[in-house]
């Protein structure tokens, strides 16, 4: 079985995003960029499935400017077999991403598509679900466990208040949550080998997709700072305020 993994280039999770001076976006100039952590977990899961003999090939795909080939190479260094880069000037909206990916899925015919549940820049949490809908295939979102049982994939999902397991027909989409696995480090020899693994570059036009605009980003602002409230003088007063004023207990 072939596995397709999607990866996104985002700001490194150690780096705080900073809103730019004219409030049009965050300032990413010379900021450390990295593989989206949830995508890294997706890559790791795919490699583990390959190592366990369940999968035969792991293909990674990324969409964005040329620089995102760096994240494809990182994924190849972690153990993926080949890469596909769909080159666009900017980062397309989720629905466009899903449409581009649908074309890749149709061409590659993977049995499983593993994606991060969300990217830590836009925090949308939607592309995997959208892709599943476009392909009319099932999804296991927020996965903390993925198992192939018979001709189905069983996905344990982290839902509010517990865990839910669903059985999905194949092909299916899995989106990863933090506890699915702990990604490995890429070794130096593998980083060098990754430079020679195949990487194909395509454009949205090659795939026959026209990128549509569904929304307009009007402004980006720093979150409002919290203001100091009041001082209370006793536990009694505190409890009274929490009960009657804030209504949180």
């Amino acid at each position: 079985m072939k596995i397709l993994v999607t990866v996104k280039r985002v700001i490194d999770y150690n780096v705080k995003a900073r809103v730019n001076a004219d409030n049009t976006d965050v300032d990413l100039a010379n900021t450390k960029m990295a593989l989206n952590p949830f995508c890294e977990i997706a890559v790791e899961e795919a490699i583990r499935l390959k190592e366990s003999g369940t999968a035969t090939e792991v293909v990674v795909v990324s969409i964005g400017p040329k620089a995102c080939q760096e994240q494809i190479r990182t994924s190849l260094a972690l153990g993926a077999d080949r890469g596909i880069h769909i080159e666009t000037d900017s980062m397309p909206e989720s629905l466009n991403v899903a449409k581009l990916l649908a074309k890749v899925v149709n061409a590659e015919q993977p049995g499983l598509i593993i994606m991060g549940k969300q990217a830590i820049d836009s925090d949308n949490n939607q592309t995997g679900q959208m892709l599943a809908a476009l392909l009319d295939i099932p999804q296991g979102t927020f996965a903390s466990k993925v198992e192939l049982i018979g001709d189905k994939v069983h996905v344990t999902r982290e839902v509010d208040g517990g865990l839910q397991t669903v059985a999905l027909n194949i092909p299916a989409i899995v989106t990863t949550d933090l506890r699915l696995n702990e990604p490995r480090y890429a070794s130096l020899p593998n980083i060098m080998k990754a430079k020679r693994k195949p990487l194909v570059v395509q454009t949205p036009a090659d795939l026959g997709i026209e990128l549509k605009t569904h929304s307009k980003l009007l402004k980006v602002e720093a979150p409002a700072e919290r203001q100091a409230g009041i001082k209370v003088n006793s536990i009694e007063e505190l409890i009274e305020k929490l009960k009657n004023e804030a209504k949180v207990i």
Binding site: K16, V26, A222, P223
Partner: peptide
């Protein structure tokens, strides 16, 4: 967005 570090 960005884990609450910005509001779009």
């Amino acid at each position: 967005i960005y884990a609450g570090n910005a509001i779009a």
